[in-house]
């Protein structure tokens, strides 16, 4: 599903000061995998997630997503790939705060050109699946953190992506809600066969995945297989 070869990324802060964030990453994630990335702040794990999500570019190496080389895509092309292949779950949920839960979930389908009725029906279906049917017409500001993250997950999976990238999905949640969210993510991975890549600080979150990739100073330091 994901094939990374010698990925380098450098941020030029100014002319004399460059930050070499990724120093040659080689990584393969198989289709249907449930993988977490752990590492200290500034270790480059979020940057890697951004590159995998085609939100950011890389300087060196090559990145294949589902066999397709992701390089020098135009904004329109990358938007299309994102819409089709990738769902995002963010730490701060990133719901659009003036849209209801239903509209937020339906948004990826809107950009895909799905008719209004059909996408609203589908959105309601997914909200129902995540136990939020009664909250469909509420605004994000009227919901709890756990509910917001569930809306975000519904939004990420509604377009039936091949890959979900979750950046600290439990970072803003208490431990009980975190566990609920992780259960949902695992369920999605198992039932929808969507590859799941989670960046996290929390060991107990990472331990629920099949594989933990440890990051240190821009390099993968170790890979732990959790499935015995």
């Amino acid at each position: 599903m994901i094939h990374l070869e010698n990925i380098h990324k450098t941020y030029n802060l100014n002319t004399s000061n460059a930050l070499h964030v990724l120093k040659g990453i080689n990584l393969d994630v198989a289709d249907g995998d449930f993988v977490s990335i752990m590492g200290a702040s500034g270790s480059g794990k979020s940057t890697l997630l951004n590159i995998i999500g085609i939100l950011d570019t890389y300087d060196e190496g090559s990145y294949y997503l589902d066999g397709q080389l992701i390089q020098n895509l135009t904004e329109t092309e990358s938007a299309k790939v994102r819409n089709k292949m990738i769902g995002f779950v963010f730490q701060s949920f990133n719901l659009i705060n003036f849209k209801t839960a239903l509209e937020n979930v339906a948004l990826p389908l809107y950009y895909r050109g799905v008719s209004r009725k059909k996408r609203n029906d589908m959105a309601l279906g997914y909200l129902d699946k995540l136990g939020l049917k009664d909250w469909a017409n509420y605004l994000p500001s009227e919901m709890s953190g756990g509910q917001k993250q569930r809306v975000a997950i519904a939004r990420a999976i509604i377009a039936k992506p091949r890959l979900i990238l979750a950046d600290e999905p439990t970072g803003a949640l208490d431990s009980k809600t975190s566990q609920e969210v992780m259960d949902i993510l695992r369920q999605v991975n198992e039932e929808e066969k969507i590859t799941m890549l989670i960046v996290t600080h929390a060991r107990e979150v990472a331990e629920q995945t099949h594989q933990i990739i440890n990051f240190k100073d821009g390099l993968i330091s170790s890979i732990e297989n959790m499935r015995q």
């Binding site: 939100l55 938007a79 659009i96 948004l107 990826p108 939004r155």
Partner: peptide, 16 residues
């Protein structure tokens, strides 16, 4: 900015 960024992440093309 945040809203537009989210829209872009969800697949809105620059043209949209």
């Amino acid at each position: 900015t945040q809203e537009i960024g989210v829209r872009r992440a969800l697949g809105a093309s620059p043209w949209v």
